[in-house]
Computed example of a mutant assay.
Amino acid sequence: MLTEYIMAFVEFLKGFSYFGIMLALCFEFVPAEVVLPLAGFWVYEGDFNYYLVVIAGAVGGTIGPLTLYYLGKWGGRPMVIKYGKYFLVSKKQIDASDRFFDKYGAGVAFFGRFLPVVRTAISVPCGISEMNVIKFCVYTFIAILPITALYVYIGFTLGENWEQAGPIFKQYTMPIVYVIISGLAIYIIYRIIKNRRLKKDNI
């Protein structure tokens, strides 16, 4: 039933052209996994331009997380836990995002967008730590852009079968996730070795 309401809402926003696509992605309760492949199908039908859809989607995908960012900044963790469910964010996701942020700092605004467990809630610790909002938006946009382009392209390629985009997207992105995780692991090891050397030099 909820999916039907979301679909009706997205179809309604289609009437506002590219602004409607952007607006749809500003709402955290509207899954990008639905909007972007569907927009790709609209490109397939000739209703929209692929590149303009990607830009609109990336802008909307950057504005949307600002809701959780400011919820964390102004209300702190207790408010996020209390109201996060309305943005489809669970306490488990918030806890995972907190740990991820503690390990990797501001870079999580970029890297976190590629990781399934933390990508939705990663905006929360960024807000709580009062990370510079311009930096947050830039990191988020750079991360969201290729994800948006891929989702729209898959929807375009599948045409009327755009609803099958989810599994195909995971197939493409899992190697990227493994590369990011490996890169982070190497970075952590590098930092540990560097800190140990600094401690030895100071002795």
Rank of each mutant, 00 (worst) to 15 (best):
M1W: 07
L2S: 07
L2E: 09
E4F: 11
E11Y: 05
F12V: 05
L13R: 02
F19G: 15
G20M: 03
I21S: 00
I21F: 09
L25Y: 06
L25W: 06
C26K: 01
C26S: 10
E28C: 04
E28A: 09
F29Q: 05
P31T: 05
A32V: 10
V35S: 03
V35C: 05
V35H: 03
V35T: 07
L36C: 08
L36W: 03
P37F: 11
P37E: 13
P37L: 09
L38F: 15
A39K: 00
G40K: 01
F41T: 04
V43F: 08
V43C: 14
V43T: 10
V43A: 12
Y44A: 12
Y44M: 09
Y51R: 00
I55H: 02
A58V: 06
G61Q: 05
I63S: 05
I63D: 08
G64K: 03
P65W: 10
P65T: 05
L66T: 13
T67S: 14
T67K: 01
L68H: 04
Y69T: 01
Y70T: 07
K73Q: 13
K73F: 07
W74S: 07
R77G: 04
M79G: 00
I81R: 09
K82F: 11
Y86C: 04
Y86T: 06
Y86G: 04
L88H: 11
D95G: 01
A96E: 13
S97W: 06
S97L: 04
D98S: 02
R99Y: 11
D102A: 11
G105E: 11
G105D: 14
G107Y: 11
V108K: 00
F111K: 00
R113L: 06
R113Y: 08
F114Y: 15
L115P: 05
R119N: 10
R119Q: 12
A121S: 14
I122M: 10
S123W: 10
P125S: 04
C126A: 15
I128P: 05
S129T: 14
E130D: 14
F136D: 01
V138R: 00
Y139D: 01
Y139F: 15
A143I: 07
L145A: 12
P146A: 07
I147V: 14
I147S: 09
L150I: 15
L150T: 12
G155L: 10
G155Y: 10
G159N: 09
E160V: 10
N161I: 07
E163M: 14
A165G: 10
G166F: 14
P167D: 10
I168H: 05
Q171R: 00
Y172L: 14
M174Y: 13
P175M: 06
I176S: 00
I176A: 09
V177H: 01
V177E: 06
V177R: 00
Y178E: 06
Y178W: 15
S182M: 14
I186E: 04
I186R: 00
Y187W: 13
I188W: 12
I189Q: 09
I189L: 15
Y190Q: 12
Y190P: 03
I192E: 15
I193M: 13
I193W: 13
K199E: 15
K200W: 13
